[in-house]
Design a protein around this nucleic acid. Structure first.
Lengths: 148, 148
DNA sequence: TTGAGTGCAAAAATTTTGCATGCTC
DNA sequence: GAGCATGCAAAATTTTTGCACTCAA
């Protein structure tokens, strides 16, 4: 899935919002990230600065929230203490997370059954689905071995 | 599932931690909440104060984090902007959440297949499971009707 | 007796907001 | 031209931490 600038603009305009340079850049940045990479607001800010784009943190916060509400980004709250965002990929690339409470490691996994469950539940309640996340919290093999 | 004071103490001691009045009270408070109720640190603080227990916010933050790491509480990050905690119920009571990005409403649902998927994934990676949460983010019927 | 746990206040970290200015529609 | 979006700084919110004191093991 590659959102073209035009499609993005059309979707924004349809809701009365506007296409801006900042929003385009942020979308492109997320689309060019290696699969599974997720960034916090601060990390995105830094990455943009490195690329020569001075976009304020306020705008970043406002934009990622907007894009999450549009279903373009997924908002992840894993173990790092702040929110992370990543591109919301459709079915074959869609993944979920396994999180260790001891080592804080995060493993991604895919499972095709989850989407089916999600669609059935959403249909029952009349929801339009933007994203679904199965997060498994547990203790990794390394964590189980550690003394603490 | 009702954790007795003794079982709680034993589990704490087994890891070198201690059973304290504050920890007992917090556990009891969560256990007496109606099913599906989740509280933020601040809400728990207020609830404890109402019940005549003056436990500092610091202790509350430290305790809920500890209990989440023990698997006694689940840490939820739904839409409210801060973490919420609830008792981690075993299978028949275990539930998941459907969240609307427009109205912020949260619906709980149960699904027995999720635990099976979780166990299979955890086994593959050698994880000991503490909790699993399928969170569906979408737009509720009311949200779809709203103009904004 | 030892050191883990608590409370308090201060600090840190993260996110939101008011307002003047800029830019899209 | 109207009003949504941005940037900046300030504020608000949420969470963590240092330290002296308390209490469980």
């Amino acid at each position: 899935m590659v959102y073209t600038e035009e499609a993005f603009k059309a979707e924004l305009n349809a809701k009365g919002w506007r296409s801006t340079r900042q929003r385009e850049i942020i979308l492109q940045t997320f689309q060019n990230l290696p699969e599974g990479t997720h960034l916090s607001a601060e990390e995105l800010h830094e990455k943009l600065r490195e690329a020569g784009h001075n976009i304020s943190l306020s705008t970043i916060y406002r934009t990622v929230k907007l894009m999450a509400r549009m279903g373009i980004l997924r908002e992840l709250e894993l173990t790092e203490g702040h929110k992370h965002y990543e591109i919301n990929q459709p079915a074959p690339h869609h993944h979920h997370h396994l999180v260790c409470v001891k080592t804080n490691q995060v493993i991604e996994f895919k499972n095709s059954a989850i989407l089916g469950i999600t669609q059935k539940v959403a249909e029952k309640y009349g929801f339009k689905v933007l994203d679904c996340q199965l997060t498994i919290i547990g203790i990794s093999p390394e964590g189980q071995r550690s003394i603490l």
